[in-house]
Design a protein around this nucleic acid. Structure first.
Length: 268
DNA sequence: ACGAATGTTGCGGG
DNA sequence: ACCCGCAACATTCG
């Protein structure tokens, strides 16, 4: 569920804990920290100050001075801060007790998400590709990237080591705006279309951030708020409904093992 | 009622 | 290089 706009929405909603200090860590699910046993975390992060909260791709990065607390929400993770803690929440997986009587709380229905704790961001930066809001993400960069590969465009965009932050929903939307069919091979997309594609990536993501992302089923931020970009969706979830450009019906079929929505007439 | 599908990622294998 | 299938897990949909 959470793709770049949703993750950015969460990051924005967490800015209030900047300059707070971690006092304690409590967990009730053993695998909530991907890269170490959670029993070590309390000692490691105690009294660490939150310098800032940023994002790369779909990763939330909490800078703790000499440590980085990195969170990935996967499908159903909720990360939020509250003044009070409800320990009875069914899907509460862990929480950080901060000073000033605040909590940083992590819930996750499906238990796919969780945290990494790193000394630096080398591993993360090596694993994931360019973020669409990175200044180096230009249409020239995109053009080189697409033309040097022969990959189905939907697969390529799902590959976070190429571009990070796009997922199933926004890829379908972006390709529709760009008149590119999801199965198009990357090196056969014309330069003119690539230029337009680059613009549409930024446009769709920026607009969605303005609407606090898309809530289809599970996405929530700041404990219970939902995103409103859903009303702007042109193809995702609109199979058998008319394309707003040409009126023919939106198709849904599996591409890259994922449900993919597109207009047969507009996208080629 | 039960199998399929759900937005993600990382892995092994072809 | 690249793609596929699957696993991690809980809930909802048809």
């Amino acid at each position: 569920m959470p793709e770049l706009p949703e993750v950015q929405t969460v990051v924005n909603s967490l800015q209030g804990i900047k300059n707070h200090t971690i006092r304690d860590f409590t967990y009730n699910w053993e695998k909530v920290i991907y890269n170490m046993p959670p029993s070590r975390v309390k000692h490691l992060l105690e009294n660490k100050k939150i310098i800032d909260i940023t994002r790369k791709g779909k990763y939330i990065i909490i800078n703790l001075d000499n440590y980085f607390l990195v969170c990935h929400l996967r499908m159903t993770g909720y990360l939020y801060t509250r003044k009070y803690l409800n320990k009875n929440k069914k899907h509460l997986r862990c929480y950080f007790t901060l000073n000033k009587h605040k909590y940083l709380i992590y819930e996750d229905i499906r238990k796919f998400g969780g945290f990494y704790i790193y000394n630096n961001l080398n591993i993360l930066n090596k694993r994931i590709g360019i973020d669409p809001f990175d200044v180096n993400f230009t249409s020239t960069w995109l053009s080189k990237g697409l033309k040097s590969r022969k990959r189905i465009i939907k697969n390529l965009f799902l590959d976070q080591s190429f571009i990070c932050g796009l997922g199933n929903i926004y890829i379908d939307e972006i390709l529709w705006y760009s008149n590119i069919k999801p199965t198009k091979i990357s090196n056969r997309i014309t330069s003119r279309k690539i230029k337009n594609l680059h613009t549409n990536i930024l446009k769709v993501l920026t607009t969605s951030i303005k609407f606090h992302g898309t809530t289809i089923m599970n996405f929530k931020f700041d404990n219970m708020k939902t995103g409103n970009y859903k009303n702007n969706l042109e193809v995702y979830g609109r199979d058998n409904m008319p394309c707003s450009k040409c009126n023919s019906l939106i198709i849904k079929k599996k591409v890259a093992g994922r449900s993919t929505h597109f207009c047969k007439k507009c996208q080629n």
